[in-house]
Computed example of a mutant assay.
Amino acid sequence: MTGNEQAVVGGGGPRSRVARKENALRRLAEDGDVWAATADATGVPCLVPLAFWWDGEAIWLSTRPTNPTGANMAATGQVRLALGTTRDVVQIEGTVRAYTAEELPDGVGDAFAAKDGWDPRTSDGRYDFYRVTLEVLRAYGTVPELAGRTLMRDGKWLV
């Protein structure tokens, strides 16, 4: 358990919103995978873990465009992401733009591969990339942190 998780679980009181923002940014920089939730046009949900890279402004994901997650993100332009544990949650709602490997901005593919050690561009079959622009970010641990859990709204930090 990390120090932040211990503080939440150990009853040290709710973390400040500033501390939760710092923890969310640390998770974006350091965590290896994120849970990605999408839905198709009929509302059928799909939840999968994906490797990701945070470029300081947006989250980059990669999956096959034919997988439900890739198809849903391309069709709806929306995704919900979750980092952390049930006692240290970072939830993100974002808008998505899809890129083929050939369309990637300079440096994105290399940075993505360097973070995780996996390069979708060299995998068998086609993998697309998905740039997630953060619209809403919530961070909380237990019930005392539910109040004030929204730290970003409309893509702007509230803290």
Rank of each mutant, 00 (worst) to 15 (best):
V96I: 14
T150V: 15
T133I: 08
T69L: 01
Q78E: 13
T133V: 13
L134D: 00
G148W: 02
T133F: 01
M73V: 03
D119V: 03
G125R: 08
G109Q: 05
Y130E: 07
A98Y: 01
G94Y: 09
S123A: 14
E135Q: 15
G109H: 04
G148L: 02
R138I: 09
V79L: 04
L134K: 12
N72E: 03
T150N: 14
R87Q: 10
A74T: 12
A147W: 01
N67F: 01
T122Q: 11
T85V: 14
R87D: 13
L83Q: 11
A147D: 12
T69S: 08
T133E: 13
D128T: 02
G141M: 11
S62Y: 04
A111P: 03
V136G: 03
G70A: 06
V136H: 15
D88P: 07
D88H: 09
D88A: 15
A71T: 13
Y99V: 00
R121M: 04
Y130H: 06
K115C: 03
T63G: 11
Y99S: 04
D128K: 05
L134H: 04
T150D: 08
T95N: 04
D124G: 12
A111L: 00
R87A: 14
T133D: 13
P65L: 02
D116L: 07
P144R: 04
T122M: 13
P144A: 00
T150K: 14
P105S: 07
R87Y: 11
V136M: 10
D106Q: 04
A82V: 13
A139S: 15
G70Q: 01
N67T: 13
A82F: 03
E102S: 05
V96R: 07
Y127I: 02
W118R: 11
P144E: 07
A75Y: 02
G109R: 05
P65Q: 06
V132L: 11
Y130R: 06
T66I: 03
E145Q: 10
G94I: 07
W118Q: 07
G84L: 13
P68N: 00
P105C: 03
G107K: 04
G148C: 05
F129W: 12
N72I: 01
T142H: 06
R64H: 06
T142S: 10
R121A: 09
R87E: 14
G77T: 05
P120K: 08
V136W: 12
A139C: 14
R121N: 06
L83M: 10
T150H: 08
R87N: 13
G107L: 08
D106F: 00
S123Y: 11
D88I: 11
T85W: 05
S123T: 10
A147I: 03
T133R: 15
G70N: 02
S123E: 15
R87P: 00
